[in-house]
Structure formats: C-alpha cells, structure tokens
C-alpha cells in the first residue's frame, strides 16, 4: 500500500509538472465592421449564452438582453457611455469584470466598436 501511494504521488506530481504551461490568450482577429450592426453583430453575442435562463434573459438579472428588449435595457440602464466608450459598464464588465468568463476573446472589442459608433439601434 505504501509503495502504491508513493507511485501514485510521484505520478500525480509528474503529471502536474509536465503539463504546466505559460501561454497567453491571443484573440482570433475579428475585424470590427465599419458599421457595427446591433441586430447583426451584437445580438448574436448576447444570444450565445448571455440571455439564457435566469442570467440576462427576460425576467432574469438586469439588464434584460433578450431579443426585442436588449437595446432599451442597455440604454435606459446606462450600461453604455457614448462619450467615453471605454468606460461603458457593458464593455468593462465583459473586458475584465464579472462577465469575462462568459465572453469569448474579441467579442468585447466588437461591443466597444458599436459603442464608439454611437450605440445605434441598427
């Protein structure tokens, strides 16, 4: 039993040491369109996990990012700041805040592009 435990311990330690890496996430290059479309570019991001169930779906946690409600919820709730787009709550939360684990690399830059272009309901 003692030998078994020792072998197990060394195997576990060896596995951990061999699989330690130091890599950075390099976002897939997603060109930001000249005219970011809320319905064509932003809503697909929200539909990819944000507005399901009780998260940010209808009747869930604010802001309501469901189809038909997302734009008004973002504008009325002051989640978007067109004067200082980088300070928008929507962007900072996706970039480095609590929603970062749910944001695919590069998606937050499309959202920033949309805000920089005036956050239009297009």
């Amino acid at each position: 039993m003692k030998i078994f435990k020792t072998v197990l311990l060394f195997a576990f330690a060896g596995f951990i040491l061999c699989s330690c890496e130091y890599e950075w996430i390099q976002p897939e290059k997603q060109p930001i369109p000249d005219n970011v479309s809320f319905s064509g570019d932003i809503m697909p991001i929200f539909n990819n996990g944000c507005n399901t169930n009780v998260c940010h779906g209808a009747g869930g946690t604010a802001p309501d990012l469901s189809e038909g409600n997302a734009y008004n919820a973002l504008i009325d709730g002051s989640y978007v700041d067109t004067d200082t787009p980088e300070a928008s709550i929507l962007y900072t939360t996706m970039k480095s805040g609590t929603m970062k684990p749910y944001t695919a690399p590069g998606d937050e830059e499309i959202v920033l592009g949309w805000i920089q272009q005036g956050a239009l309901n297009n």
Binding site: I16, S19, C20, E21, E23, I25, Q26, P27, E28, P101, A104, P105
Partner: peptide
Amino acid sequence: RSEKYFGMDYKFTNRFSY
C-alpha cells in the same frame, strides 16, 4: 468551455489550472 474562449493556437492543455 468551447475552444473559442482560448483564442488562437488552441491546445487541450490550455484548459488546465492548478
């Protein structure tokens, strides 16, 4: 999570944490 969360040059070991 899906591979897209790990960016370019994805490897399975990118998922590990200790």
